[in-house]
Design a protein around this nucleic acid. Structure first.
Lengths: 194, 194
DNA sequence: GTTTCTTAAATGGTCATTCAACAAATGGTT
DNA sequence: AACCATTTGTTGAATGACCATTTAAGAAAC
């Protein structure tokens, strides 16, 4: 019980410290010592809990993925129509729990490293396929066939592009404004009279 | 004369080898030895020409930037109207000389590293500002004020997002198809009747 | 008293960079 | 053309720094 609890506490603390440390020093450059310092622990104890640096980083990215998935589920659950569900998918990316400087920073570095780290590649593919099929499902009810894929690709690229931009902006992020903007972009793409 | 020439040859060869080696091993993981092997040289000779690994990588990213700039200039020069120039800006990103697996791979890793490497951050900011102001200039003639920034941000994010996707796709890239698709997205955004 | 947790120090490996010596090209002088 | 002094180019082998991981011993919790 209590034994299990301390393990979970360390697990969460270390993942949290990893997010902070990677944001601060970069995915490539961050060291075990820096992560440990952020958590008030030592590099040796990270290995006690996670076994290796690679597994710690994998668990951290998995954590970010689960935050995103949770935001999607929360928002989709409240949506009644295909249109609302599409907006829910889009806005989940800019949920307060997801659209933060630190997380966007990690995502971009994750994208860069995924092709070279097997465990990350797996996570990345699973996520991308899930998002794609969600979008396809909702767009089927909203657009004629000849436009669906164009709009889907545009929306998914848009989401990624905004996260990318977020990592290079100096001001703090405004998640609500990002959601408004995303809705506006979706409206333009859906209601076009071409 | 001839002295200068051999320096230029090595310079180009090494940058070319860097692109290949980074694509193969990743920006973070690639070593001087791997880059040298790709060029048929040694790590020591890279330092003779570039002084350090960081300067080599900086020069490589600068090279990619100049390829992109060249594509933009070439295409914009042939465009007569604001609409054509906007399309030129967009299509330059997917020019045959730019939209390759290797280059997209480097760009994504460049985005991830830019915030942590001063010389890269400089390059990245200069490029982003140039692109943004180009888009703003052309959109001014094409859209009412209340929609310009939304469309601009959507288009720029779209461009980045497609490059990102390219790095994770297994098939070889089809630049002509990407240009078609980009044009279609732009049409949807420009001709919307919201 | 046994299991769980923590850490300082040791280990071993990797890597960018430097160095010292050697090779090749160049250009000026016969 | 032949010579040689100088500059330029190249490399294998150090050098030294850094870092993930292991170890061994002790502290804390049960």
């Amino acid at each position: 019980m209590s034994r299990q609890r301390i393990r979970d506490i360390r697990h969460d603390e270390l993942i949290d410290a990893t997010i902070k440390a990677v944001h601060k020093h970069g995915y490539a450059a961050v060291t075990m010592t820096e992560i440990a310092r952020e958590a008030g622990a030592t590099a040796a104890s990270i290995n006690y809990y996670f076994g290796s640096k690679e597994r710690l980083l994998g668990a951290t990215m998995q954590h970010l993925l689960s935050l995103l998935r949770a935001a999607v589920l929360r928002r989709v659950a409240m949506a009644a129509t295909p249109h609302e569900r599409l907006m829910a998918l889009l806005e989940a990316n800019f949920d307060d729990s997801v659209y933060t400087t630190e997380q966007c920073s990690l995502w971009v570095q994750f994208w860069g490293s995924a092709p070279y780290v097997k465990s990350l590649a797996r996570l990345h593919n699973i996520n991308r396929q899930r998002v794609t099929s969600n979008f396809r499902a909702e767009l089927r009810a909203l657009l004629p066939e000849d436009r669906r894929e164009t709009v889907r690709e545009a929306l998914q690229s848009y989401m990624d592009g905004v996260w990318l931009e977020a990592t290079h902006s100096s001001q703090p992020l405004d998640a609500a404004a990002a959601r408004d903007e995303a809705r506006r972009v979706a409206q333009l793409l859906l209601d076009s009279e071409v």
